[in-house]
Write a protein that binds this DNA or RNA. Sequence first.
DNA 1: TCTGGGGTCCTAGGACCC
DNA 2: TCTGGGGTCCTAGGACCC
Length: 351
Amino acid sequence: MLHVDLDQFIAAVEVLRRPELAGKPVIVGGRGDPSERAVVSTASYEARAYGVGSGIPLRIAARKVPDAVILPVDHEAYLRESEKVMAVLRSQPGATVQVLGWDEAFVGIDSDVPEEIARELQDAVLAETRLHCSIGIGDTLVRAKVATGFGKPAGIFRLTEGNWLQVMGDRPTIDLWGIGAKVSRRLASLGITTVSGLAAANPADLVPEFGPKMGLWYAQLGRGEGSRVVDDTPWVARGHSRETTFQRDLTDAADIDEAVRVLAGHVLGDVAAEGRPVIGLTLKVRYAPFTTTTYGRKIPETSDPEAVLAHAMELAAKIEPGRPIRLLGLRAEMTMPEDSRQGHTPTRSGW
DNA sequence: TCTGGGGTCCTAGGACCC
DNA sequence: TCTGGGGTCCTAGGACCC
């Protein structure tokens, strides 16, 4: 199977509609104002050369790259381009496409010459959208996904059972898809620092630390094993959430109340568009500077906005008075359609 | 003034039931 | 009386991904 990943996707889309930005350090984030609380969504390769990447505060990014062009995030534009790319992938004969996000997808195609197929895909995407992509080829989803990183930019790389350890064995566990900073540290505390170390680990030794599912999964991940099936089951959202970081921390009770009301309005709009009833609510509160707490509860199934709002306000009543608040988020969980399979998710698609 | 926004899933622990 | 064992449901918290 193949894993297709667009190169510097968001920055590339911006350059497409403003050709004069080609070759310049472009940073996209927030509302494009580096004086605001926001982070970088994507930086062009020129900006990355200064050490700017996704997730770093926009303010810091602007300081590192004084002559950067800083642009606001434009979701609609990226979604439109993304749909064009996915359409190209789906148009390939015999292709099964599992979308992982705006800028990446697994493509299942049977072929004895996958590199040729990959090259054709790259050409087709480029011809239709003027966007470059990198492609990983693998015998499992995990290996294909990890392989893409070695193909960037605009290249192709293959990882299989045969070369997995040779290529990945000496790398740190955090390079694996699904292992982040926290888990890699916990693995290190067990004496496991490299992919080959994880591959050799006895799954039973990981279970006490990570639990029955994650323990077994991490051991598998170390060997690059996992699903070999590209699943194109349409994705059905389990819930919708909205959150806001306030430019100035909120302390006034009336302001906080109003902010929850506004969030609820947005979430209700998203939920109404789905037409499925709400069955749970979670209110996320970041007390300044970075202590995050959640208050949640199941609610009786309802499609009545007033009822949902009333439950949201009940949760809001749990907010500790007087503590400055930096972020509020509200998530609504919906009923799932009867016939929907447990779909694959970006994070867990290797399961 | 350093820290977005939208998602999913797993785990632990308490409540409750038989 | 000094405390079973299995199961489910719920909430809070954690981790990861794009």
